[in-house]
Design a protein around this nucleic acid. Structure first.
Lengths: 244, 244
DNA sequence: AGAAACCCTGCCGTTGCGTCAAGGTCAAGG
DNA sequence: CCTTGACCTTGACGCAACGGCAGGGTTTCT
């Protein structure tokens, strides 16, 4: 048989068979005078076996081991490993499909799924289009997505934002967008903000901030100078009180 | 944030993030004076989304589409496709595990699983260590594995080999191993062989032989000249009677 | 001041072939 | 006889999503 014929017979492509030769899975057969590969019935039998095994999901080197004429013990081991591997993959796929289903179920917000704690928090928060509030929501969504924040903190924050007075605080922060870094309102706002934070929340803040040091700078970089000053004061206070 | 920080935050490797820049999934952020990438909170949010989507199994270009700020409709479509794809994969894996289980269940013969028809045939066949019979078994295993043979033919063959007289025929074929191509026993054996084949079997042979022309030559190449002559006569007869 | 722990830009390796590219070979038909 | 067309040959690049390494600079801690 020529390569195309044996390929059609066992249901492989010529390219695959040449590949098997290349990687040493199947030795190169004799050649005809014209250089064509001349395959025997035994080659076909071997290739049929190779096909069965690769279709089961074995890698080519595993197939090589399994075919190494000492098949017996070796093979069973490989197959058991493979089955375990497939079981893992299957569970994996099921988990993914589960999450996919959750995603497909609720298409309102494009922000993706959030933990129940954060969901409650966002539901509690007053409807405002303050840019600063938007930044906060973005930040909270991030810490939620990264698993950095605890449900406890979200709960405490929920009681905080339930107070309609926070809207005014956000507006005062927004108002500092164009202000210089030494604007007197900075100190006042920082003090009022800290006064609004209940003690339990202070206690709940993890001492090393938010796991990643650089996140603090990145956060400050999002604000105008005067606003950043307010946020910095708040964060410093959280750090100190959190520790003490 | 530097790349290592944001990577730790969202749970990716720095290498992956750089890869995303490279393929245009996420634009390169500003650089610090020293050349380090400087990431913002928004980058972290984006990367968190990327991670969620890739973990679901989306390819990077699909993620790119899904993130293209028009997310809404596009995304749901992609996700539904993905779910269908995962369903296929899951079924696939289950099928593979099923066959794996079958393989693990019966480890006696290393030849792999055979169709019920062939199994019955092999069980019926008398125990002989005739090399010619071994060739036949190999050949039958091959056509079975490739799905080239029908269960009907196996059944007809089973009735044929149930006759203990076939052993003698095989032995006469073996005896021709060293014979010249014009040995008088050739004609006799060929005639006896054809006489042993029931008419139903002739009728059941597909007219175009065995799908692949070259298989015939390959088969003949396995025999010594005199034996090949016998086999060739048999095959010719099959071809002619099969058609007529 | 030196080591540890970062960061940078390439470039090769992985898996199992698909897909050209740039040709030889062979059987059949005008 | 010459031309298709369907085969065959070797060789090399492409793919998906990064991992790992080389060879170098920066920052930071001690």
């Amino acid at each position: 048989m020529r390569i195309g014929e044996i390929a059609a017979l066992v249901g492989l492509t010529t390219r695959a068979i040449r590949h098997y030769h290349h990687v040493g899975l199947l030795p190169e057969p004799e050649r005809r005078p014209n250089g064509y590969r001349a395959y025997s019935v035994r080659d076909a039998v071997l290739l049929a076996r190779v096909r069965r095994l690769t279709e089961l999901g074995l890698g080519l080197d595993e197939v090589r081991d399994a075919l190494a004429d000492d098949a017996g013990r070796e093979l069973a081991e490989i197959l058991k490993e493979l089955d375990a591997d497939l079981a893992r993959q299957e569970a994996d796929i099921r988990e993914r499909r589960r999450r996919l289903g959750a995603l497909l179920a609720e298409p309102p917000g494009a922000t993706g799924p959030v933990s129940p704690g954060l969901a409650a928090l966002l539901a509690q928060a007053p409807r405002t289009d303050s840019p600063s509030a938007a930044k906060d929501r973005e930040y909270l969504t991030l810490v939620d997505a990264t698993g950095t924040g605890s449900q406890e903190i979200f709960a405490l924050l929920a009681t905080l934002v339930a107070d309609p007075a926070v809207v005014e605080l956000y507006e005062r922060l927004d108002a500092l967008a164009e202000a210089p870094a030494d604007d007197p309102r900075i100190v006042l706002l920082a003090a009022d903000l800290m006064a609004a934070v209940p003690d339990e929340l202070f206690a709940a803040i993890p001492q090393d901030g938010v796991v990643v040091a650089g996140l603090k700078e990145a956060l400050l970089a999002e604000y105008a100078p005067a606003q950043a000053e307010v946020v910095r004061r708040l964060m410093d206070a959280f750090m100190k009180r959190g520790r003490g």
